[in-house]
């Protein structure tokens, strides 16, 4: 670092120290607390809490909802990014705004939306009931709420990458006679794969952790419609504090894995971008 635009050492040290101290208090202490409280009653209690049938079912349901969200929001996200990045059409910026909307809607409002739609007195409530289809207070409701919450993640990460890469390669392939799917598989997706990965990681992290919206539509049936975060809440309210924190620590582990994956993807993406720049420079 050039000394002409850097601070004296003591200023630097103070700033680094206070930033790390703030991060320790705000971020690290809660993380440590979860593992501490989870293990406070010993490994046996911890293991029993994590392998309890209700906990296992909650883990399964959480992963299922996350997987469905990943597939649907992933495929639709690629389609949306393709439409928005590769074409200009009226209402394009309105569409972008509409896609970002779920980011700013409060989770509780999201839950309410689905109650209004699929509850007994909602738009489709009577029809669903007469056909014996359960949406709300059953797995489909949980999946729908998760889908809504995680809706924008993939598009938002894909869009800037697709726009930055440009369409020259695709257009060249088209001129050379490649078909649409071939272009998508062979050119576009490889070009944006890190952006896609990044979006999917964010999407799954949010899907696994969603609480407010799912809480409104779940019905809290033990061993049936409880996701992992809801199971944590139930244990917490059951006086089973150590078990609650044990299950919470499982969620913390997935969060930490997410952070690692994210760092790896970011690093790979950066490298890919630099290589592309070098390649571009040589060709130019």
């Amino acid at each position: 670092m050039n000394s002409s635009h850097s601070e004296p050492a003591w200023v630097r040290r103070t700033l680094i120290g206070s930033a790390l101290a703030a991060m320790a208090v705000v971020l690290v202490v809660p993380l440590v607390a979860v593992f501490w409280e989870g293990l406070a009653a010993g490994w046996q209690v911890y293991w029993a809490a994590v392998t309890d049938p209700d906990a296992r079912h909650a883990i399964w349901l959480t992963l299922l909802a996350a997987a469905i969200s990943l597939v649907i929001n992933g495929v639709a996200g690629i389609a949306a990014a393709w439409a928005i990045a590769k074409f200009r059409f009226p209402g394009r910026s309105l569409l972008i705004t509409a896609i970002e909307l779920p980011f700013s809607v409060s989770p509780v409002v999201v839950g309410l939306l689905f109650v209004l739609l699929f509850g007994s007195h909602g738009w489709f409530g009577a029809w669903l009931q007469s056909h014996d289809v359960r949406v709300i207070f059953a797995m489909p409701g949980i999946v729908l709420a998760t889908l809504f919450i995680t809706f924008p993640f993939v598009v938002r990460e894909l869009l800037p990458v697709m726009e930055a890469v440009g369409s020259e390669e695709e257009e060249a392939a088209r001129v050379l006679g490649a078909r649409g799917w071939q272009i998508l598989w062979r050119i576009t997706l490889p070009n944006v794969k890190w952006g896609l990965m990044y979006g999917l990681i964010l999407c799954s992290a949010r899907a696994i952790g969603e609480f407010g919206a799912v809480s409104v539509v779940s019905g809290h049936i033990r061993g049936e419609t409880n996701t992992m975060p809801l199971h944590v809440e139930i244990l917490y309210n059951d006086y089973q504090y150590n078990a609650a924190f044990a299950c919470a620590s499982v969620l913390c582990l997935t969060a930490l894995v997410t952070l690692v994956l994210k760092a790896v993807v970011e690093w790979r993406a950066e490298r890919a971008l630099n290589q592309a720049k070098v390649k571009g420079g040589v060709e130019a």
Binding site: G119, S120, H121, Q129, F137, G219, I221, E224
Partner: peptide, 20 residues
Amino acid sequence: VKQSHDGSAKQAQAVINGLS
């Protein structure tokens, strides 16, 4: 028998809204 527990009014509301 599966169980669901929460504040009583909230539970009644859920049943009204279709919790079966």
